[in-house]
Design a binder for these strands. Structure first.
Lengths: 338, 338
DNA sequence: CAGCAAATTGACAGCGCTGTCATTCCTGTC
DNA sequence: GACAGGAATGACAGCGCTGTCAATTTGCTG
């Protein structure tokens, strides 16, 4: 038979209610009693039954991770965040559920409502690019579902995790400037993503600080995919006065740029063209030449965002927006300007 | 206040138990009553409370998807399967939970036990490469947790979904043979994966059927990554008598092969070297040249595997191993032998 | 050491649903 | 028209836990 809280209580010589208090880390239990109950739980290998806890109490011990699978088809970035969120939830014995949502879809809010009504998550983790979708945030607040975000665009009052992507992009471009490059192109990501805006801003910061004027022809639109990197590279390399370095807003696009440079234009990277990306996806270090990029610790970020959410859920505090440090990964795809 | 089953019952003029029978699609309810209850549920927008259902009944309405995040770090393949599983579960109002497991880890079974004890899933979906890990299957059977698999290696008696990868690989190689290629290389995947074995077998089938003897020098080991494709290509292209076509066991490795061919060896693909892969990942169609490959409908496969599992869970039958058709994607990376 | 507030503990009901088993309502049969 | 036998329905308890509130113990003050 299953071990119930009542069994634990009997073994520890207390009432079930007191055992419950220990289980939930509530106040007003003497240290001695607490220890005794903990020992009994351990000895009996007690596992609380989630359904009984949520039925009787007001919590579901469930965290939902929301993502947009429209513009992010099965990306490794989200998979890594998911792994991190899961790890944090597991550590606190919360369960996690994932919810793909299409921000463009008309039934977006209906699906959010269905999630809340059907599963009653205690809180949700928001991932780019739906960290700042106003109707969603409004609905979550109305329904009193706490949320934490990974890389939200509006950061005042936000809870979750960020990285200073603007500073990182700037540092990366300054690395190129330091190598003597002056005509540095930038392949922009999907405009709505905060990531695109920050990385573009960092690019501009670096140019401005170096006293360079931005050449509009060197800033081309991409869409975070390999294919869009290919298209952007074709556009840039066909320029009468082509760039000596390209900073793509993510690694997939950077890989597309290298692919075209080497394949169609026969340019040696980095001797004739330097290329760098952003994110440090697994492919980045396997490419030849290995890609210079910025390491974005996605897994860690998911974990931290979830941890902040859990702080709130457990009444441990108001929750903060924590910032993780970035780290340039200087590899073989960037070199001195020709 | 929340709408309870009792409210539905009252509105329909029946007892809560009868309303419960309708909710669970049980037998012995007259059609008229069933309709009346359904209408009441609709009118009141009734949502059953999962925790109450699982506490009172013997089911948890939870399906867990198990995967190995050791050898498959955040792959898009798993993300697509996950999307499919989720869709199937959603349709039946089951919730889904994902569990990363390290098959190499010593605490593997402990983690499986913890999953079962903590969350009580009604069933699990197994994904490659842990579809055939004997201790796992044994434990699941002992604990009486039904499971369905995506692409299991041992197929007798298995429940889930497969694709005839061997036939697909053979068809792909026959496509190369039809283009006049005779020296066709194969880059093998991770040996433990069923996928590697089937694709290699299909390669051999095609050669044998064409009356060709296999040249051991043309079969090189890879590991399903871009980097391993790069390494394999270097090995193959350095051969005194090099192949005119390369069949890589997946798209990532095929991309690595094209990379080396065009970059380091200056070989035009497909004019001087034909390359094909397997899986049809998003990147495949974005590459230049676009990659000839086999479309593996991962999302659909996840959905079908979960659907079979749900059939079993709902007592609708014993569950089957369904087979999905493959489709060659003949694109630009393969052409007539030089 | 009385007297009081605060800390600690427990009794008990009930969360929303389903399992068990009893009861009622049909149908067809001779 | 009485009755067997199955189909349809309902009464009731209880799943394992927590919220409420009352009871008890403890620690402190003067």
């Amino acid at each position: 038979m299953r071990v119930r809280l009542e069994d634990v209580a009997r073994a520890a010589g207390v009432s079930p209610k007191t055992a419950s208090r220990v289980l939930n880390d509530e106040a007003n239990v003497s240290e001695a009693t607490r220890e005794r109950v903990r020992a009994a739980m351990e000895a009996l290998d007690y596992r609380p039954l989630p359904s009984a806890r949520s039925l009787a109490g007001s919590r579901s011990f469930l965290v939902a991770m929301l993502y947009d699978n429209n513009e992010n088809p099965a990306s490794t970035y989200l998979a890594e965040i998911q792994d991190g969120v899961l790890e944090a939830c597991d550590a606190q014995r919360y369960s996690m559920m994932v919810r793909p949502l299409r921000a463009r879809g008309s039934d977006f809010l209906r699906r959010v409502d269905a999630l809340i009504s059907d599963h009653h998550p205690d809180g949700v983790v928001l991932t780019p690019p739906i960290t700042d979708y106003a109707p969603l945030l409004k609905r979550l607040r109305e329904r009193k579902v706490p949320y934490a975000s990974v890389s939200p665009v509006r950061q005042e009052g936000a809870i979750g995790v960020t990285m200073d992507e603007r500073a990182a992009a700037r540092a990366l471009v300054e690395h190129l400037l330091g190598l003597g490059h002056r005509r540095i192109a930038h392949v922009v990501g999907i405009p709505e993503h905060g990531a695109s805006q920050w990385r573009l801003a960092g690019y501009r910061d670096a140019l401005a600080a170096a006293g360079l004027r931005e050449d509009p022809a060197l800033v081309v639109q991409g869409a975070f995919t390999f294919g869009s990197g290919v298209a952007a590279a074709r556009q840039l390399l066909a320029l009468p006065e082509r760039p000596t370095a390209v900073f793509a807003a993510n690694d997939d696009m950077a890989a597309g740029v290298i692919w075209v440079a080497g394949g169609e234009y026969g340019l040696k990277v980095p001797a004739e063209l330097s290329v760098c990306g952003f994110d440090d996806i697994p492919l980045a270090s396997q490419l030849w030449p290995a890609l210079t990029t910025v390491r974005q610790p996605s897994r860690e970020m998911g974990k931290l965002a979830a941890a902040q959410l859990l702080e709130v859920l457990r009444g441990r505090g108001p929750g903060r927006l924590v910032q993780v440090p970035f780290a340039l990964q200087l590899r073989d795809s960037t070199g001195p300007a020709p």
